[in-house]
């Protein structure tokens, strides 16, 4: 059983998760998370070699829909919850750079 201790880099993780953590709370978070991680480390006691991982509680496959289009939601409805809007009907966000997007 290798029980090497993993230290959590809270700043890095909080950056990934986009969560601002108060400086005053940082060490508490660090400690609490460390405790949880130390606790869940107990899984390393189990031998899981050759075990197939379970991703779904119900085993099914090929669940899909046919390619039919519908347009049930008006723009007005889709945008009424938006915090900031442009008149052109786009959602206002701080500047993003061309080509920086995801896909």
């Amino acid at each position: 059983m290798n029980k090497q201790k993993k230290t959590i880099d809270v700043d890095y993780i909080a950056g990934l998760a986009k969560l601002e953590i108060d400086e005053s709370k940082k060490s508490r978070f660090q400690e609490e998370m460390q405790n949880i991680v130390d606790y869940v480390d107990l899984l390393s006691e189990l031998n899981v070699e050759n075990i197939i991982p379970t991703a779904h509680a119900a085993q099914m496959k090929n669940v899909w829909r046919e390619d039919v289009s519908e347009n049930d939601f008006s723009r007005e409805v889709m945008l009424k919850n938006a915090p900031e809007l442009f008149d052109e009907g786009t959602i206002k966000v701080p500047q993003v750079l061309p080509g920086e997007g995801t896909a």
Binding site: S69, E70, R75, M78, G89, T90
Partner: peptide
């Protein structure tokens, strides 16, 4: 395709902004 990948919104180009949207794709 006629519709988007994971919702039934039309897969079309050149429409007014945010008119081809639904709770899934937003």
């Amino acid at each position: 395709t006629e519709s988007k990948m994971f919702c039934s919104c039309p897969n079309r180009y050149g429409e007014e902004p945010n008119t081809l949207t639904c709770p899934v794709c937003m």
